[in-house]
């Protein structure tokens, strides 16, 4: 029984921790972020399974996490405001030659990160970029001039 509570608590706690830790867990995983995601995942498993690694316990834990995820996904679709809190919103980083400093500093994104995304689009300098937007997934979209 405790496993189900642990799994549900672990899901929401991990969600909160990952959300406040990094914006780009899936977008641009650097080795630095890999360490965080895998380490907290491993620690959460210890607390969820505890001293009962039986198939019954692990099956219940997997089902519990799966069901919570399903319900959260449904709730997120139904209430868009919830989606904002869980996934965040896109933010404009660069607009018409001006860095949007609130967004850059708040998201802890450096111009180098934006330039890396611009290079992937075949652009050679910031002057070719009209807009740079950090997406909810954490990836940076570049709109050319």
């Amino acid at each position: 029984m405790y496993t189900i509570f642990h799994a549900v608590f672990g899901y929401f706690f991990m969600l909160l921790a990952v959300r406040v830790l990094v914006r780009r867990p899936g977008g641009q995983l650097t080795p630095f972020e890999f360490v965080i995601i895998f380490l907290i995942g491993g620690i959460a498993i210890l607390s969820t399974i505890g001293h009962d690694p039986s198939v019954t316990n692990c099956t219940c834990a997997v089902i519990a996490v799966g069901m919570v995820h399903r319900f959260v996904a449904m709730a997120r679709t139904r209430w868009r405001r919830l989606g904002r809190w869980m996934d965040g919103l896109p933010l404009v980083l660069l607009r018409d030659g001006q860095w949007q400093l609130d967004a850059m500093e708040g998201m802890r994104i450096e111009p180098d990160d934006v330039m890396a995304a611009a290079r992937e689009q075949g652009l050679t300098s910031f002057s070719d970029v009209k807009y740079a937007v950090v997406e909810r997934t954490g990836s940076i979209s570049i709109i050319k001039r």
Binding site: R84, G88, L89, P90, V92, A103, V133
Partner: peptide, 8 residues
């Protein structure tokens, strides 16, 4: 974009 700086 759907940006909302107040929310952010």
């Amino acid at each position: 974009v759907g940006e909302d700086l107040a929310f952010q």
